[in-house]
């Protein structure tokens, strides 16, 4: 292992420009990936905020007795998906409407708006299917005139999130592949530069694992350094956007560590491919 590390360092010292180039290419690939991940992260967190406002309103017919409403609320409140149910009386509805739709405040008159049971769902149950199911159950009460839950925008919201996740995964995989190919190529150059050494190693009885080790260390180190550089660049980009445009969220320590680990993995894979190919040829 010590020899392998020494050999890896020798490779680094012998062709510093190539090594730096390798690290920078990995960094840029991961940076592109990081930027996309940052966008995805911020979309997700924005969606979470919007999602918190998903609400089902079951409008209650005029003249329904408070007891009937209380019983229904007790029932609905005991559904496992439901976080809480609140009753909004016609008077409160008017106040809320005046507050939320200020420009129309003079249009509203007393008695114009019905009372409603406002149902909020627990986190994790705010998907269109659950929302719809709860809304349907709420509509089975005879005194419930109508149920509204913004069906369209709940579904749109979810489609957007699914799209963001898939696009993120696809682009991430593409960038990771590009990075593997790039580091594979830089390691390949290093392998070819040392093919004579490799031939002699094999001649005197070095195992494939032994021959591979310095290159794996090389790829790993380049991957980690590239990952750290990409992390720094992504952080800088995030800070710049936060300062000049909109407030953004940055990766937490766990995600950042995963990013660097991904760099290491890309470096290792690239090395493994190019050394493996070379060993197969000789």
């Amino acid at each position: 292992m010590r020899l392998a590390t020494r050999e890896a360092l020798t490779g680094f010292r012998k062709s510093p420009l190539l090594s730096v180039l390798g690290i920078v290419t990995i960094a840029f690939s991961l940076f592109a990936f990081g930027l996309f991940a940052l966008v995805a992260l911020n979309i997700r967190s924005a969606l979470r905020t919007v999602e918190e406002r998903v609400e089902i309103r079951a409008f209650v017919a005029d003249g329904t007795s408070p007891e009937a409403i209380a019983t229904a609320m007790g029932d609905i409140g005991s559904f496992p998906e439901v976080l809480r149910v609140t009753y909004v009386s016609p008077e409160e509805a008017l106040v809320r409407a005046k507050r939320e739709l200020r420009e129309f405040s003079d249009v509203f008159e007393s008695g114009f708006l019905p009372g409603s049971m406002d149902i909020r769902l627990r986190p994790g149950f705010r998907d269109p299917t659950t929302v719809k199911a709860v809304a349907e159950r709420a509509s089975t009460y005879e005194f419930v005139d109508d149920v509204r839950y913004g069906q369209e925008w709940v579904e749109k919201l979810y489609r957007l999130r699914t799209l963001a996740t898939f696009a993120g995964l696809a682009l991430g995989a593409a960038f990771a592949l590009v990075a593997v190919i790039i580091i594979g190529a830089t390691i390949r150059t290093a392998v070819l530069a040392r093919s004579r050494e490799i031939a002699i190693m094999r001649l005197v009885g070095a195992t494939d694992g032994f021959v591979r080790m310095p290159f794996l260390i090389d790829g790993f180190v380049k991957g980690v350094l590239g990952g750290l550089l990409a992390l720094a660049m992504t952080w800088f980009a995030s800070e710049t956007i936060s300062r000049h445009m909109i407030r953004t969220e940055f990766f937490d320590a766990r995600i950042a560590a995963l990013g660097v680990l991904a760099g290491a993995l890309i470096g290792l894979l690239g090395s493994l491919f190019s050394v493996g190919r070379h060993l197969k040829e000789v």
Partner: peptide, 21 residues
């Protein structure tokens, strides 16, 4: 390949072009 590597440790191989580093 591993057995071959182990075998070569018990063989000495010399070439016309020396093959030194």
């Amino acid at each position: 390949r591993r057995e071959i590597a182990k075998l070569r440790r018990k063989l000495g191989i010399v070439f016309q072009d020396f093959r030194l580093l």
